[in-house]
């Protein structure tokens, strides 16, 4: 398995292939590196994080190459931050559930947001693990490369807890 690009985003440092490119927040990264996709502001934080990592990681792939790329992401808390926010909207004394929030109570929505942005029709999968286990993640990704058709896989760990604590560690790999 060969790594073609590697992006790491934390609240204080964003790097591409090991070199720091920004120290901005997610909204700041959007303005620096995307800027043309207002839907970004409707996304929950997990999706914003995954979206920006994908922006930086897929820069050198052509539309044709993206079409059958797979997106396989992992984390530990699933969509728990948005789950908590949604829970607040269904307490008995304060009941106003919103579909715009509920849809983000699924961790795999981040893979869908990336697919829509990049016109990726390949596999999108989300796995929730008990810990950030690099060996296990690599096994799942290399098994996918061996047993199905994608030439490229965008993969990695993407977890959002709060503004001070989030990480996307994403790479583009090929056989």
């Amino acid at each position: 398995m060969k790594t073609l690009a590697h992006v790491r985003i934390t609240p204080t440092d964003t790097s591409v292939n090991g070199a720091t490119v920004s120290s901005a927040s997610l909204a700041g990264l959007y303005r620096e590196f995307a800027g043309d996709y207002p839907k970004f502001f409707k996304m929950d934080s997990l999706c914003k994080l995954g979206f920006m990592a994908a922006e930086l990681c897929l820069k050198n792939l052509s539309a044709d190459e993206k079409e059958n790329t797979a997106v396989i992401l992992f984390n530990r808390n699933g969509s728990l931050v948005t789950d908590r926010n949604y829970q607040k909207t269904i307490e008995s004394d304060n009941y106003f559930p919103s579909p715009a929030l509920f849809v983000y109570t699924l961790a795999n929505i981040v893979t869908g947001e990336i697919a829509i942005r990049h016109k990726i029709y390949g596999e999108t999968s989300f796995y929730v693990l008990d810990s950030r286990d690099e060996t296990l993640m690599d096994e799942i990704v290399s098994d996918t490369l061996l047993t199905s058709s994608p030439r490229y896989i965008l993969t990695g760990f993407v977890e959002y807890e709060n503004e001070q604590n989030y990480i996307a560690d994403i790479k583009l790999v090929t056989k």
Partner: peptide
Amino acid sequence: PPLVVSNA
């Protein structure tokens, strides 16, 4: 380590 597949 078990896997959890959470694809809606």
